[in-house]
């Protein structure tokens, strides 16, 4: 009996740091966010009052709707680029070519060095006239562009850098996914005369479905929360063209001091990531039942 209470005390002491700090620094701020998104007045207003969905309407009308659109375009491009590049490179690394497997390490580099530093490099490479990209464009006889100061090209530039920075993670994850396909199943397919393309289509791809789903979720959540790239390269400009949802939260909350709009967008970001995670849980559950 004594031992049991001792065990309980130990267990509560062990879980206390995680549980209490999660409550204080995740759940309390979340409650504050939800509550304050329904209240009027900025940071300087001393008498907050309930305003219903006014902040949401204001946010959507004042650049927030546009920012959500930019986030959607950015995230879609980000997911497509990094997942396709990740899968293709993982297949190459996984091919039975000598030495290929050892080439995995370089792809980790962009992922682990400070984003601010690599963003400054890419800013320099996208510079007008002397930047690498414009040098390549003129070498190819194409017109140059002032990438970071024109809306369309700025989004392309930010997306290119974002994909470069992150795709290594999907290379690593797809290599692990390909390794999880049992060797004997692949060998059996080879014996039946299946070439690499058919082995991929009919064996590896279906057997990696679960991995692909998990990779999609992590990649989408990362794309949704893009911030540092934008902060360093464009500050959301030109003319809001690269203003993503998270940059909007930062800009309204910490630069313009319109916390009503910032909180409304914070809630939107929270709901979007919740939706992605819920989709994951639902699809995983369906896949498990189908098995």
């Amino acid at each position: 009996m004594c031992r049991r209470y001792g065990t309980w005390a130990l267990a509560y002491a062990f879980v206390a740091p995680t549980v209490l700090l999660t409550a204080l620094f995740s759940l309390v701020p979340l409650a504050m966010l939800l509550w304050r998104s329904l209240q009027g007045g900025g940071v300087f207003d001393t008498s907050p009052r309930f305003v219903g969905l006014d902040n949401y309407r204001d946010m959507l009308a004042e650049g927030g709707g546009h920012a959500l659109g930019v986030t959607g375009v950015y995230t879609a491009g980000f997911v497509l680029l990094t997942m396709v590049a990740g899968l293709v490179l993982a297949l190459l690394l996984n091919s039975r070519v000598p030495g290929a497997a050892r080439l995995r390490a370089p792809f980790v580099i962009p992922l682990v060095v400070p984003v601010v530093a690599t963003a400054l490099i890419w800013g320099n490479m996208f510079a007008p006239q002397f930047g690498l990209v414009n040098r390549l464009l003129s070498a190819a006889g194409l017109p140059q562009a002032d990438f970071l100061s024109s809306p369309g090209p700025a989004l392309v530039a930010v997306l290119t850098f974002g994909a470069w920075q992150f795709f290594g993670q999907n290379v690593i994850l797809y290599v692990a996914a390909l390794k999880s396909v049992p060797r004997d199943v692949l060998d059996a397919a080879s014996v039946d005369g299946a070439g690499p393309v058919r082995r991929f289509r009919h064996v590896q791809w279906p057997m990696m479905r679960r991995h692909t789903l998990l990779i999609w979720v992590v990649t989408t959540l990362t794309g949704l929360q893009t911030f540092t790239q934008i902060y360093v390269l464009t500050q959301g400009g030109p003319d809001g063209a690269t203003q993503t949802a998270l940059y909007y939260v930062y800009n309204e909350g910490f630069v313009q001091f319109d916390t009503g709009r910032a909180n409304a967008m914070g809630v939107a970001l929270f709901l979007l990531s919740l939706l992605i995670t819920a989709t994951q849980v639902w699809l995983l559950g369906r896949a498990d039942r189908a098995r």
């Binding site: 999660t22 620094f25 995740s26 759940l27 309390v28 701020p29 979340l30 504050m32 966010l33 304050r36 959540l221 929360q225 911030f227 998270l246 939260v249 930062y250 909350g253 910490f254 916390t259 910032a262 909180n263 914070g266 809630v267 970001l269 929270f270 990531s273 919740l274 995670t277």
Partner: peptide, 12 residues
């Protein structure tokens, strides 16, 4: 905590 992305709650 995993369901509440830090980026959503930077203001509070």
């Amino acid at each position: 905590g995993l369901m509440v992305p830090f980026s959503a709650i930077i203001v509070p």
